[in-house]
Design a protein around this nucleic acid. Structure first.
Lengths: 149, 149
DNA sequence: GATGCTATTGCAACATGCTGCAACAACTGC
DNA sequence: GCAGTTGTTGCAGCATGTTGCAATAGCATC
């Protein structure tokens, strides 16, 4: 190969990784993977279903959600919940991180390990709690929205 | 009565506060308030609907949810989203606080302003973001579950 | 390339929550 | 105490996900 750089086509390895676990590579999974490969950042589940339907109108939502579960096991996607409780998926998260959501403009930003370090330390020390960064969700007002009020 | 201790019957004022805003005091709202008055800590929306039905089997879910919206405006309840994205309501929050959820045992704990102070400071300083504590949600493993693995 | 094991699919039904709309009924004012 | 105004209700339907189950179809093996 030699494609081994920052993001060396992780998609190409997915079928093999599935099979290595006794799982299967199906047309429906191929469709979802094709969609994910063109996606960056956050998407909602409904959006993914929608996009799969453009590739294959016969797409069934439950299949998409179940495949996403499998892919989450493989570490290909991550999910969290937005401000409204809707699912948000993350494609190929470079590093574990949480999310900042603005209730004014609905923008979202990442909270990296460094930002959260202090909170993680406090909770570990005071309660022995081990924080899972990927599921950290913080709401509030972003700089712009805060200054507007 | 004579139960007037820490929480001085805030419920008694609700009808007046509604009317002060031109809103109305209806039997359905009375039912929900009766349920909330006996509730402490967190409840899901579905649970509240359920409990209202025991008082009044004719309870309609949409009415409950709409009333909860109104009560949230009045500051009587607060909502957040649990690990699974389901709604969790908080009755009479003594102070703004976030939530810690254990993905092992599904227990939840409060994150008070003090716990979150460092995170709030970091986000304010680095991005000018104003955190809304009541919507802060942190997942991970509690002390017990973490030591089990 | 046929066979068998079993992961996966598709479907239907359910769970939770929101929304539009016509009918109803609290409150206000007379 | 009656009538009008308009906030609320109940209902039906939608949106987003999840789950159970019978039928299908990958894939490993021969």
């Amino acid at each position: 190969m030699g494609e081994t750089q920052a993001a060396p086509e992780p998609w190409a390895e997915v079928p093999a990784r599935l099979r290595a676990r006794g799982l299967r590579w199906t047309p429906q999974r191929r469709t979802l993977l094709a969609v994910l490969a063109e996606t960056r950042g956050h998407v909602t589940g409904a959006e993914l279903v929608e996009r799969c339907r453009t590739l294959d109108p016969a797409t069934i939502p439950s299949t998409v959600y179940r495949t996403l579960d499998v892919l989450e096991d493989l570490g290909i996607v991550r999910h969290a919940h937005g401000l409204d409780g809707r699912e948000e998926f993350h494609v190929l998260p470079a590093a574990d991180h949480g999310h900042l959501s603005c209730s004014g403009c609905h923008g979202t930003w990442d909270v990296d390990a460094d930002d959260a370090a202090a909170l993680v330390a406090v909770l570990a020390e005071r309660r022995g709690f081990r924080v899972d960064l990927s599921h950290l969700s913080v709401a509030g007002l972003c700089k712009g929205c805060a200054s507007e009020r």
